[in-house]
Design a protein around this nucleic acid. Structure first.
Lengths: 105, 105
DNA sequence: CGATTATATAATCATTTACTTATACAATGA
DNA sequence: TCATTGTATAAGTAAATGATTATATAATCG
């Protein structure tokens, strides 16, 4: 995802989806495992996995495995041109309160 | 195009296209009429008109008619969160040199 | 080991998208 | 007024996209 105008379009395409923006909003608060994201977004696990795959392919999130869980975290510090958008994402603190999984204790 | 997360996704969807980003790059230099944009982007006039319609619907460009021409101009000064992206758009100064229409003299 | 849990991938489908061609509309100018 | 020029809209189509269901893979734990 280099920065030709096409690369920029590709990055923006990844960002231009409600579910993916919501995932980024969540990850702004803290790294999260797939199961927690599924829980909060009220959709299926494969759906979230596929969105995460796109975010990862665009370099917008990082993935790390610990025990049986895969954690995703925001990776935008090196993309200053996106900071305006990232800041615009609403807080998801409220939604995080409802989580009660072992993975994220 | 209010700023819920869905509105943000809609705006980003409008931005996430190579042709539309290129149009915005052009308009960064100066306002332009449709025929000039068609000339530079080497595509059909209806194609450009449809892209301009989307940009306009998203509030990203303004339209003004003068004589037989319709001029479009960038309208992003009130959208600070997009400034990083707008700045990222490459200069199109080179391409503007080749224009030689009456409308833009 | 086998069962369970967490996640990824594959296949399918409906919807959306960008483009093309054809046509309509609008303004100008002979 | 009629032809021309500039732009918009409509209709059709192929490709891309997001979601679902089913299945595969991987790690943990009894």
């Amino acid at each position: 995802m280099n920065q030709t105008i096409e690369g920029l379009a590709d990055t923006l395409k990844i960002l231009s989806d409600k579910t993916r923006l919501t995932i980024l909003s969540l990850l702004k608060e803290k790294e999260m495992c797939v199961c927690d994201i599924v829980d909060i977004l009220q959709t299926t696990q494969p759906n979230i996995s596929q969105h995460l795959k796109k975010l990862k392919s665009g370099g917008l999130v990082l993935e790390t495995k610990r025990r049986q869980w895969v954690y995703y975290s925001l990776n935008v510090d090196d993309k200053a041109y996106l900071s305006g958008i990232i800041q615009k994402l609403p807080s998801m603190k409220e939604q995080l309160l409802q989580l009660n999984h072992e993975c994220c204790k």
